[in-house]
């Protein structure tokens, strides 16, 4: 266990930006899911779960395939 902590601290300069980027992507997608309740398929709960649970992939899938038409709301 001790060894793992050493690794974590040694590579903190990489881990911190990765975590920040993942969180930024997740939060952007989450806000979009909540504000635009029309989706091409699925419902709000499904997309919230996808966006939060699947880091990086979830928000990409949502913006690429799940997002509804902007003109409808």
């Amino acid at each position: 266990m001790n060894n793992n902590w050493q690794l974590l601290i040694k590579y903190l300069p990489i881990f911190i930006p990765i975590i920040i980027l993942e969180l930024a992507l997740m939060i952007t997608a989450l806000i979009h899911v909540l504000r635009h309740p029309h989706y091409r398929f699925g419902n709000k709960v499904l997309w919230i779960i996808i966006v939060v649970v699947f880091q990086i992939i979830g928000p990409i899938v949502y913006f690429a395939f799940g997002r509804g038409d902007d003109s409808r709301g």
């Binding site: 980027l21 928000p59 990409i60």
Partner: peptide, 9 residues
């Protein structure tokens, strides 16, 4: 935004 984040990751 998505592309930038993905590529940076």
């Amino acid at each position: 935004l998505i592309l930038a984040v993905v590529f940076l990751i």
